[in-house]
Write a protein that binds this DNA or RNA. Structure first.
Lengths: 204, 204
DNA sequence: CGCTGTGAATCATTTCACAGCC
DNA sequence: GGCTGTGAAATGATTCACAGCG
């Protein structure tokens, strides 16, 4: 399977696996079977085996997967081995919530730069990061930052994105409820909170 | 098509269509073709036509779709015609950000109740909503609230969920990075922010 | 024996292509 | 003529089922 095209959906599940594996690791488990993992995540076990088989042979027949090894492999596939400095654009309510969000640590993201265009906010600190002017986004390459989070109002989102792209960012996590235009080489993932909520009443 | 099983993916796209249609409406457009909508959303036009055809015949051949009519139809399908009171559990950073988030208005969600278990927070106001004790969650049926948002730390998420379920909530938007156990009749949508970010480096 | 790894079968979704209606 | 609505074809993802290894 190693040379097949890997489904996008498999990639999407890898961070989920990683989180579950970290949980098992902390619980002191040495090995875990696809069945165990499937039960924990409410997935199908052969899907888990297939997902990992796309990337190589990670398990031991008769035994299962070595938890810590699989964690390393998964981190490796996702390119999360090293801590990744990340830039946040927008220091409003959402930006502040993201700065406080402990979840990023699991995947090694570290928000080391925060930008805003409100002069009143510039220079202030949130946690231990100082808010800088959006003009400083041009410095990102110097600071080795290639991931950005867009948490500005919808109307400013494309502009913020353009600045990140100009600073050679390769990935953007977007919270503005709109499509962002970027060059093909830049990957954008949009999280539209209200949109997710929007389909809930349908199922009720 | 009217009597076919409707793909989950189609439902997922309806809120996206709604947002785009509202944009066209505000721009003064009377009609929009599936082609126009597709271009705007970076979708395939026949997918849009098929999605709407699952629910009935909404367009006019040779003309396109009546924007305002389609907005009404879409709202109707998603059961968003009326303002929906919604409960938020967790008044931390994320909760505050959600309260300030303008996006909910588009879909008619109105956070009219906020609960937290921190006695220091209870009674305080955020915007024009007062924080109440989580014990008051039992009052939700009285207050006609059947949607809940879980924005508490991971360790408290299942407990918060259980309280919402006990109060006959039918839909839950979950921000805790874990699977929530609920009875089958309750629909849960989980947004795991860090997880989304977790696959960004893979594509870079 | 137990569990992985994986072709093959199934199931779901998307796209094509065009008949049919305005 | 133009655009919808939709079967049919193509594509993509999931699940089955079991061979093969530890």
């Amino acid at each position: 399977m190693r040379y097949h095209k890997i489904p996008d959906e498999s990639i999407r599940r890898l961070p989920v696996y990683l989180r579950a594996l970290l949980y098992f690791s902390q619980a002191g488990e040495k090995h875990v079977s696809s069945e165990k993992l499937a039960e924990f995540l409410h997935f199908n076990s052969s899907q888990i085996r297939k997902d990992f088989s796309y990337f190589g042979y990670f398990g031991t027949r008769g035994v299962g997967y070595d938890v810590d090894k699989l964690i390393r492999q998964t981190r490796n596939i996702l390119k999360l081995e090293n801590q990744r400095p990340t830039a946040l654009v927008g220091a409003g309510n959402l930006g502040k919530a993201l700065l406080a969000y402990e979840g990023f640590g699991i995947y090694g993201f570290d928000i080391t730069a925060v930008f805003d265009n409100d002069p009143k906010k510039i220079g202030k600190k949130i946690g231990n990061v100082s808010i800088e002017s959006v003009k400083k986004i041009t410095d990102l390459p110097k600071r080795n930052i290639s991931l950005g989070i867009v948490a500005v109002p919808t109307g400013a989102a494309q502009e913020a994105t353009d600045m990140l792209v100009a600073a050679d960012v390769t990935g953007i996590l977007n919270f503005a409820p709109r499509h962002l235009n970027v060059p093909r080489k830049v990957k954008v993932i949009t999280i539209d909170i209200a949109m997710e909520l929007g389909r809930l009443p349908y199922y009720a």
